Simulated assay, not measured.
Amino acid sequence: MADEIELEPLAPQEAIDAFRRKGHAITFSWQDMERDEHSRDFTVAKVASLDILADIRAAMDAAIAEGTTLREFERQLTPLLQEKGWWGRDVMTDPLTGEAREVQLGSPRRLQIIYDTNLRMSYAAGRWERIEGVAAARPWLRYVAILDDRTRDQHRDWHNTVLRWDDPWWDQHAPPNGWNCRCTVQQLGDRDLERMGLSPSSPPSSPPRTWVNNRTGEVRQVPGGVDPGFDYNVGRANMAHMLDVATGKLDLTDDDLARATIQAMVAGRSFSSFLRSPGTGAGHPVATGAVRVGGTRPTVVLPAETVRRQAADGTLPQAADWMRVQAMIDAGQASAQGNVRHITLEGEPYVMEVERGEDGRIKVTSLRRVGS
């Protein structure tokens, strides 16, 4: 049962914030939303009313923030959902096919799944934010499985796997790794490994399987031992969502305040983490635009794909170089689409390539020191 969850009595603030940042989405099937979309929106499949969705969300918020048990969650929601008609089996029209189908609405089993999944994913998102915050001092993550008769064989095999926090294996294997998965990670430093008699591992391998989303037609390879829909790092997706929200606010912020905020962001630990593990999302702010468009001044972003590409070919600049992008923008060196400019700042020659995206923001597609 989900009320046996082995978690802290009260969620860390990061987990609460991760849940509260979400919007709402109406879906018919769990397959209607992609993996990282769950970091942006709260949904319950086959809830067609925002009113009912808001009721379930409010109860889930209390469960995360106040430590409400599954029993209390069910006691609060069951009569409310029954009164509003979202209970038992009913006929609904699938908006994708137009077909009338008999479906399961509210039930004790469904409430348990809603409670368990949202609680674990929120904790995982909050935990990852903490992981990146102290990764310099404690760079190792240990995979921890609950070793009982309910544990998946694959997850049992991964128990005590020790990898760096930025190892690509965590992109698809950071727990939870499936419905009712109770696995978690423990963050460790070098001395912790020595004290516990552990040593770094090689990334475990398990044959992937082909999975077809029969709602969207998407075909992808899902790692063995991971349920479809859980094959992503919810913490990194949550942090990408945080960046996207922050970037939208910066578009509307006073010029001087936006500059100061972005410079502080680029100088901080979160940007260093982004350079090592860019994740998903629109990118990280690195400067403010030189020209306002209407009431906004589009923020200049460093896309994740730029980081991955330049890291792969060994040309990714350090954070100190990205601090200089604002000066390049202010000098008028990157204001039109498709710019490739040669810029010298304080005697250092650079080549910066930018493009303007459909959202109006300038994206840095390459930044290199000449001769490096």
Rank of each mutant, 00 (worst) to 15 (best):
R309T: 14
C183H: 02
R109L: 08
W165N: 11
D171H: 15
Q112H: 08
G178H: 00
R191P: 07
Q263S: 01
L7T: 12
A311Y: 12
P223W: 07
G189S: 12
R138E: 12
I262G: 00
R191I: 09
A311W: 12
A319M: 02
E74A: 15
W211N: 05
A260Q: 01
R368K: 14
L367H: 02
T280N: 11
K46G: 06
D41W: 08
R142Y: 13
T93N: 00
T93I: 05
E358G: 05
Q112W: 05
T344D: 15
R236P: 07
I64E: 04
P228R: 06
E358H: 04
L10A: 13
S273P: 00
E129K: 05
Q13E: 15
A63F: 07
I52H: 11
V301W: 00
Q318Y: 01
Q186Y: 11
W322C: 06
A240K: 01
T315N: 12
E72V: 15
A312F: 14
P12Q: 08
W179I: 03
E8V: 13
Y123G: 02
A54M: 12
A331Y: 11
P223F: 09
F274W: 04
Q333V: 13
A312S: 15
V185E: 10
F230A: 04
H38Y: 09
E348D: 07
Q221Y: 09
A25Q: 15
D61N: 11
I329V: 15
N339R: 07
A65Y: 10
F73T: 06
R20N: 14
T261F: 01
P203I: 14
A18K: 02
T161N: 12
M60G: 07
L50R: 14
A125Y: 01
V212T: 12
G23D: 13
A124E: 03
H155W: 00
P298I: 05
G371K: 12
L81E: 06
A320W: 02
P176T: 09
Q154W: 06
E129P: 01
W87F: 10
T78I: 11
G85V: 09
D61Q: 12
L147E: 04
P204D: 11
G295H: 10
A267H: 03
Q221E: 14
A2P: 07
R292L: 04
L243V: 00
R369V: 10
R89M: 03
Q31F: 07
A2Q: 03
R195L: 13
G357F: 00
W158A: 09
K363F: 01
L105P: 05
R120S: 04
R276L: 09
A59E: 10
D55P: 08
V212F: 08
W211E: 05
T93S: 02
P79C: 10
R110G: 06
D94V: 03
R195N: 10
W322Y: 07
A11L: 10
G314R: 15
W179S: 01
V44Y: 00
L198S: 12
R138H: 13
P278V: 02
D192Y: 08
G357I: 02
S206G: 13
T296F: 09
K46W: 03
A311H: 14
E102S: 02
G197P: 11
W128L: 07
G126Q: 02
T216Q: 10
M1N: 06
Q104D: 06
W169C: 13
D313W: 14
G289S: 04
A237H: 02
E14C: 06
P9I: 14
W170A: 14
R20V: 08
V47L: 01
D321C: 01
E14M: 08
E346W: 02
R368E: 11
